[in-house]
Design a protein around this nucleic acid. Structure first.
Length: 264
DNA sequence: TCTGGCAGACACGGTCGCAC
DNA sequence: GTGCGACCGTGTCTGCCAGA
């Protein structure tokens, strides 16, 4: 009794009843994984397992996403290959024909250039530039343009330099850069009149107060760019587009200057 | 809505070859 | 050597578009 009294009177080394109960309940909750503890390694908990499960699901979803992305890239690659084949076909079928037209017309122009009278306007030279079989834009463009260039330059035929020859007689692959090649192909592909009335994508010039311009033939344009990029892989499409526009701007400026001279 | 990247449009200057 | 004409490259401005 005394002992009991003594024991009961002393503070319990493990705390009072309520404290013990609280600790016991906490241990139960810890075992059940319903509360968090810093000593995570003591008891395996459902939350941890759940986390592992979530991680696993997330990894699976990530893999699925990767696979989807890979599949999309494969599809895109296939589409690009198909487009490339199409462009190759275009180049193989059209560029040689263009070159033949250019060569034949260059020879014809060389033979007849001395007979041409000096002409101030490109339009005046136009009728002589049409070739039989030029009804197609490709063939017509080739010959017409070359002739037009010749006609334009008949103003000063004696002043022709090798660079001039690169435009008229020299083949595009002989050019020294991608931009030079694209300029040469441009002149050999489209009639000068078309070039004077066109810019790369059509529309009004973004700068200045120019008139409405037509877009160049997308097929020929793509063929020119593709052929150029094939020979000069380091050049970008943007650079070639800039080169084309440079040439077109230059031709328009030259024409405008010629008209001004005609007025005075 | 803002911003950065890209491409088009244009102007300008350098280079080259030819004629004088 | 100088002038001229053509070609070519580069810089700048502008507009469009996708992404943050």
């Amino acid at each position: 009794m005394t002992r009991l009294t003594l024991l009961n009177g002393l503070p319990s080394p493990i705390g009072d009843t309520s404290t013990v109960m609280k600790r016991r309940r906490r241990r139960v909750l810890l075992r059940r994984g319903l509360i968090w503890t810093k000593r995570r390694d003591l008891f395996p908990r459902k939350s941890e397992m759940q986390r592992e499960q979530d991680t696993s699901i997330w990894e699976k979803k990530k893999m699925q996403q990767f696979q989807t992305t890979i599949q999309e890239l494969r599809d895109a690659n296939l589409a690009l290959k198909n487009e490339n084949d199409h462009l190759k076909d275009l180049i193989i079928k059209h560029i040689p024909q263009m070159k033949e037209d250019i060569a034949s017309l260059a020879g014809r122009c060389a033979a007849t250039s001395k007979q041409l009278q000096p002409q101030n306007t490109v339009a005046a030279a136009e009728p002589q530039k049409k070739q039989p079989g030029d009804d197609d834009d490709d063939g017509g463009g080739d010959g017409g343009n070359n002739n037009k260039i010749h006609g334009e330059r008949t103003e000063a035929p004696d002043n022709r330099s090798p660079r001039d020859n690169s435009t008229d007689g020299q083949s595009a692959p002989d050019t020294t850069s991608g931009t030079a090649m694209v300029r040469t192909l441009l002149l050999g592909t489209f009639p000068l009149e078309t070039l004077l009335q066109s810019n790369l994508n059509g529309g009004k010039p973004k700068r200045g107060d120019g008139e409405q311009l037509e877009a160049l033939d997308p097929g020929k344009k793509a063929a020119i760019i593709e052929a150029t990029m094939k020979k000069w892989p380091h050049t970008t499409k943007g650079q070639l587009g800039t080169a084309i526009n440079n040439k077109l701007t230059e031709l328009r400026a030259r024409q405008k200057q010629t008209k001004i001279i005609d007025i005075y």
